[in-house]
């Protein structure tokens, strides 16, 4: 009886958490399917369904252009941050070099630094350097703020890989590069995937830099572009289209995570050492 009681209690807690997390998301999904007339009727399930909002956003160049910017900027920033992060994390996990503690400390400092306080100086600097409203103008700060995250996650993964595997590879005749490529890298792959997803989500979701460091369609990403959405006339409420756009940019992330979930699962190194 006690077991059933405990199970029910846990089930209730689980439901509360899931509902709390999902209601706002479902609300936006619901809004995106509502017609203009029923938008404010307060029903959770739309009374009349429409796909007009989705058709509308894909008919505007604003959204499509922003989507291209978002994908491009997030992918490039993720790739660079993960490559740099992998190298830095490998060094931190494996080597003893002077200034190692300082490096870890500084990267922690960057992660803790309030980004808002950097927006104005960055704005001035980027205008001075001609980076304002360009792709590199967003990619650079994204890499800066994603690197600590990448280094931390990846060095945790590298620490999990037994060092003896590398020694064994050396004894088996591998050069350091071969040992990294054929033994360490395949084992670190889940860590690299996890980090890539986290960094990608960070870049994809950023609003602060996107709104402050861009001014035109040339580099404005979706989160920023959404705030500039208007209806077809000035007096029209854009809630429906904003909701639709929000749904559209959330879907790739969800698919991405679901698709790579199996690869993220840890425990790939089981069987390497001990019995």
């Amino acid at each position: 009886m006690a077991a059933i009681g405990a199970k029910t209690r846990w089930a209730l807690i689980d439901i509360v958490v899931v509902v709390y997390a999902l209601v706002p998301v479902l609300w936006i999904v619901s809004l995106s399917f509502k017609t203009k007339e029923t938008l404010t009727d307060g029903n959770f399930v739309p009374r009349s369904w429409t796909l007009q909002n989705y058709v509308d956003i894909f008919n505007t160049t604003v959204f499509l252009r922003a989507l291209v910017n978002s994908i491009g900027i997030a992918l490039i920033a993720t790739a660079i941050a993960v490559v740099l992060g992998t190298m830095a994390a490998y060094a931190i996990a494996r080597l003893d070099f002077p200034g190692k503690q300082a490096l870890v400390g500084v990267s922690l400092l960057i992660a803790m630094f309030p980004q808002v306080s950097l927006v104005s100086p960055l704005f001035e600097m980027e205008r001075g350097l001609g980076l304002f409203d360009t792709w590199p103008g967003l990619i650079l700060p994204y890499i800066t703020f994603a690197l600590p995250l990448a280094i931390y996650t990846l060095s945790a993964f590298f620490r999990e890989i037994p060092w003896e595997l590398e020694k064994a590879a050396k004894m088996d005749g591998a050069t350091p590069a071969q040992a990294f490529r054929r033994v360490i890298a395949p084992l670190a792959a889940p860590g690299v995937f996890t980090t890539a997803i986290l960094v990608f989500i960070f870049c994809w979701n950023d609003f602060l830099f996107a709104i402050s460091l861009t001014s035109t369609e040339a580099s404005r990403t979706v989160p920023a572009a959404l705030s500039f959405f208007t209806g077809s006339s000035q007096f029209e409420d854009p809630t429906g289209t904003i909701s639709a756009a929000a749904v559209v940019i959330t879907v790739p992330i969800i698919l991405f995570v679901l698709f790579f979930q199996r690869r993220i699962v840890a425990g790939l190194t089981s069987g390497a050492v001990k019995g």
Binding site: P162, E164, L165, K167, A168, A169, K170, M171, D172, G173, A174, T175, V183, P186, L187, L268, T269, S270, G271, A272, V273, K274
Partner: peptide, 17 residues
């Protein structure tokens, strides 16, 4: 790798993948 010696480790150090 240039010494042509093989080693067996205490932990076996097999490549898990």
């Amino acid at each position: 790798k240039d010494r042509d010696i093989a080693m067996v480790f205490q932990s076996y150090a097999l490549y898990p993948h």
